[in-house]
Amino acid sequence: MENPWNNEAVGELYRQKVGLAEMLKGGVIMDVTNAQQAKIAEEAGAVAVMALERIPSDIRKTGGIARMSQPGMIKEIQAMVSIPVMAKVRIGHFAEAQILEALGVDFIDESEVLTPADNENHVYKHDFKVPFVCGCRNLGEALRRIGEGAAMMRTKGEAGSGDVVEAVTHMRAVTEGIRRLQMMRTDELMAEAKRLGAPYHVVVETAELGKLPVPNFAAGGIATPADASLMMQLGAETVFVGSGIFASEDPAPRAKAIVDAVTFHDDPAKLMEVSMKLGEAMKGRAVNEMDESEKMAGRGW
């Protein structure tokens, strides 16, 4: 197989994929389970929707195997909105990804929220014309996924919890890892690549840039405008909101408020204004009170 990093055509395709991620910056990507919710999300100003059958908090409640969504339901959402439509595949399930590509989804999330299909390998994402986003808990995991061709990274956080603590932990871990790289001498980067379990060329590129080579978004447990602002101020470039909107008391105003909170994340007066009269946030579950077996963030290799 040809090294994608030396192939001009693959490089050009990769730039188009990362380019779409660039266009989503400063926006909010919302989980939706039907066309009506997708319309509410678009009306509120979402930059994209993530089509899935059950929001993560319901996956937690109902259990069972969580798989790629039904293509018919994704098609209905595509017909309803003009913003990009994303959908999830199980970790390593490249056949699900092939189906989503045939459907023309705009972005695929290879997601720990679904039940993993492979205990060792992720999808080789350079094989696809559609871009991928993947979750990470730390820098090594982020750089492995970028090595496989991910065009966007997001923190894993703890999906469906309504608790932002893990997203904060993961964002800080990635940032701290990059700061370490920047302080290193060139002759120390190979040992660091070994320690991170990450491809050397991506480690070098990240050290030179002082940031991930692809946009870095926040996800997992974001439920309020303040949560969104917190993640943006910690270095996220966009925010995914999963259960936080449609598991809340009054989704439409909350969706709009979170969109405004991302744009004006550094303006406390504006944040105060948009946080007024929102109804109850999702109830949620504290991550620190969960059993290890209930957590999704540990999925992914």
């Binding site: 660039e22 266009m23 989503l24 910056k25 400063g26 926006g27 678009e42 509120a44 100003g45 979402a46 930059v47 994209a48 003009s82 913003i83 990009p84 969109v259 405004d260 744009t263």
Partner: peptide
Amino acid sequence: PGGESTTLTRLVAR
């Protein structure tokens, strides 16, 4: 810049 025109329309208005 580039972005989503649906989102930009709403944010420009607000």
